[in-house]
Design a protein around this nucleic acid. Sequence first.
DNA 1: AATTTATTGTGAAACAAGTCACAAAACATG
DNA 2: CATGTTTTGTGACTTGTTTCACAATAAATT
Lengths: 210, 210
Amino acid sequence: MKQVTKHVIRNDLKRLFTYRLCLIGFKRKGFDRIYSYNLGEEAGVTAEQVRKDFSVFKIKGNKKSGYKINDLLHAINEIFKYQHNQHVIVVGMGNIGKALVQYKRFILRKMVIVASFDIDPSKQSKRFGIPVMPMEMMGEIIKKFHVKVAILAVPDISAQDTANILVDQGITGILNFAPVILKVPDDIIVSNINLCDELESVIYYTQKVM
Amino acid sequence: MKQVTKHVIRNDLKRLFTYRLCLIGFKRKGFDRIYSYNLGEEAGVTAEQVRKDFSVFKIKGNKKSGYKINDLLHAINEIFKYQHNQHVIVVGMGNIGKALVQYKRFILRKMVIVASFDIDPSKQSKRFGIPVMPMEMMGEIIKKFHVKVAILAVPDISAQDTANILVDQGITGILNFAPVILKVPDDIIVSNINLCDELESVIYYTQKVM
DNA sequence: AATTTATTGTGAAACAAGTCACAAAACATG
DNA sequence: CATGTTTTGTGACTTGTTTCACAATAAATT
């Protein structure tokens, strides 16, 4: 039943996020329209890649005068719109968990952390804008706020057990910060962020390539 | 001169990290030897993929009796060994920066954060095991500790400026948490972690695929 | 209104990554 | 020690992704 779900975020989707970032930058600088090669240069990909990506997502430009930035932003936001005001919980209030519940940017992107959880009662007394609750209350909160996605920031040793609980309580997507390959049912989305791996990769490349 | 450096971590290298994680798990469970299909299953890839990856990195097993876990771990660590006890700095002591300087796992992986920096003098008075210094002292510290890699956790508005300073001071690798596509010279490694994108991706997939 | 120019949109070609299939090797067994 | 079994290592094949090349077309120019 339990299986490794290797969830690799599609590259074109990732690039879509990058395009959005660049477009916001262009808009801030006062631009109104943009060509595929401008955006490509800014995003670090070829102009053809930009056009292909837009083509995949059915985003149309205007031959000769390129794309309207507002249209692009609107189209990209449309792709993600149904997920606005999604409720998210954070499990594990260590260093990473605490930083995430205080991270302002989620709100700007309409993602709302409604509660956090920790086994340590001393942490439960504290608040960081949102309440820190005992693990036992998770089911209740998940049901009450229709939470589908959880951020998992517990120690690696308890990551799998906690993931099992999350799945049992109805969570279908996990953003996992624990350095563990979680075993979850096939239909559960898991995305891993391993900070050590990321840092070590950068160090690797600074010493190797070039 | 300044160019977008799109640094995409090679997939096989990323898998190598995953294998290491799994191998440590197997070892903990008392295993001594392992077959490509065990490791593949655990890591969420095919057995052939495992063997191909090892073949690329010149890691040899034993026909019929598979791989010795210790040999594998040793071989993988060997690939990254020259970067042990690398000194790293953190720039920007907001939520993310604070979490990272307190993140224990870096030490376990022999990556040492030697100092952090912030423009805000009120933060400079504090300490989190390591000193929080004014930006002006960056050059001195980078030289003193031969720092090559920096974690950039400043607000997006000052990310590019800060990156420019880092590069000027001799940094060659940046782990960037600011939601900005940094423009740096070709030979500088940049790896981006965009927490909003990651969370939004998970939400996207929980609602779309399946 | 015809001509030139610049840019998109997309099939075809090239390239990269992953899977398959099987020979070679190591160990087990009779 | 020959035979059978299992697993690695890798060349061939397949699948997926990116780049190329160019027709279609919108705007600018004459």
